[in-house]
Simulated assay, not measured.
Amino acid sequence: MRGRMSWDDLWPILLNGTLETLYMVGLAALFTVLIGLPLGVLLFISRRHGLVPMPRLNALLGALVNTGRSLPFIVLLIALIPFTRLLIGTTLGSTAAIVPITLGAFPFFARLTENALDEVDSGRIEAVLSMGGNTWHVISKALLPEALPALLAGITLTVVMLIGFSSMAGVIGGGGLGDLAIRYGYQRFNDQIMVATVVTLVIMVQGVQMIGDRLVRALAHRR
């Protein structure tokens, strides 16, 4: 693999790495939202003056989220190797990489969710409560719909971060473009592959950001 490659040789390798990255990012984004969204909602409603005040639970969840956000992802990636092996059966490949990627991202998205809910006008919440609504009605009829543009912006930011995480997962053989850049670009001194993977990642990030921004603007205009 050392030296220049023809496009016919480079294209299949690059395509496979791109598909593995999309697979990792897609599933990790899904799991991150499934975990981070309810956690962020719980952080918001369990505040001392929230809808369901639970200060001790809020402090515990806040500490958990802050700890997860404070750990550098490369450290978390290595620290979770035993857990990933226990859960998946291996630490190699794109499927195994989804575990640390998700665990590294959901605390970040939980805080984004909490911040998005902070932007909701308290009058909306009071209106639902005055009509006899319960906590679930407030969440489903006021908080989440009103915070949807901010939540979508947070998802966009999170997906961009996940692309970076998926690249770092290549350090431990996580597959994808990061693994391709390390094994074939760096270790085999192939600048062609290194440049190709960097360009592909930049295009991927720009595409996600552009689509996310357009969706956010469309939602904001409807409001």
Score class of each variant (00 low, 15 high):
Arg85Asn: 12
Val205Ile: 15
Gln209Val: 08
Leu129His: 00
Ser130Met: 11
Ala220Thr: 14
Ala150Trp: 07
Asp9Pro: 00
Gly3Trp: 07
Ala63Tyr: 05
Tyr184Gly: 08
Val202Lys: 07
Pro107Leu: 04
Tyr184Glu: 15
Val216Gln: 04
Thr21Cys: 04
Met204Ser: 09
Val41Ile: 13
Ala150Thr: 07
Ala59His: 05
Pro149Ser: 02
Val25Thr: 12
Ser167Ile: 09
Met168Glu: 07
Asn134Pro: 13
Ala59Met: 12
Gly104Lys: 14
Asp213Val: 03
Ile172Asn: 09
His49Gly: 02
Met24Gln: 14
Ala153Asp: 14
Trp7Asn: 05
Arg2Met: 11
Thr21Glu: 01
Asn115Thr: 15
Thr135Tyr: 01
Ala79Cys: 07
Trp136Val: 12
Gly132Leu: 08
Leu151Gly: 05
Arg47Val: 01
Trp136Lys: 11
Thr102Trp: 13
Asp9Gln: 13
Ser122Phe: 03
Ser46Pro: 04
Thr84Arg: 09
Gly104Ala: 12
Thr84His: 06
Leu117Pro: 11
Gly17Cys: 05
Arg188Ile: 07
Met24Ala: 12
Leu157Cys: 01
Leu71Arg: 08
Ile139Ser: 01
Val208Pro: 02
Glu20Thr: 04
Ile125Met: 02
Met194Phe: 06
Leu77Asn: 14
Val120Glu: 10
Ile182Asn: 07
Tyr184Ser: 06
Thr102Val: 15
Gln192Gly: 02
Met5Ala: 09
Leu215His: 01
Asp118His: 15
Gly176Lys: 06
Ile98Tyr: 10
Leu64Met: 15
Pro72Trp: 10
Ser94Gly: 06
Lys141Ala: 15
Ile13Pro: 02
Asp118Glu: 15
Leu151Cys: 05
Asp118Leu: 14
Phe31Asp: 01
Gly50Glu: 10
Leu112Pro: 01
Val160Ile: 13
Leu43Gly: 02
Thr91Ser: 15
Leu43Phe: 00
Val159Trp: 06
Leu157Lys: 09
Met24His: 05
Gly176Cys: 09
Val33Gly: 00
Val198Ile: 13
Leu27Lys: 03
Gln187Ile: 14
His137Lys: 12
Leu34Asp: 04
Ser70Cys: 12
Asn190Gly: 02
Leu27His: 01
Gly185Arg: 06
Val160Phe: 02
Gly62Arg: 06
Ile35Met: 12
Met131Gly: 13
Gly185Asp: 07
Ile155Ala: 09
Arg2Ile: 12
Val25Asn: 09
Ala127Thr: 11
Phe189Val: 14
Thr113Trp: 02
Gly62Gln: 04
Phe189Asn: 14
Asp213Ile: 09
Gly164Tyr: 13
Leu15Cys: 06
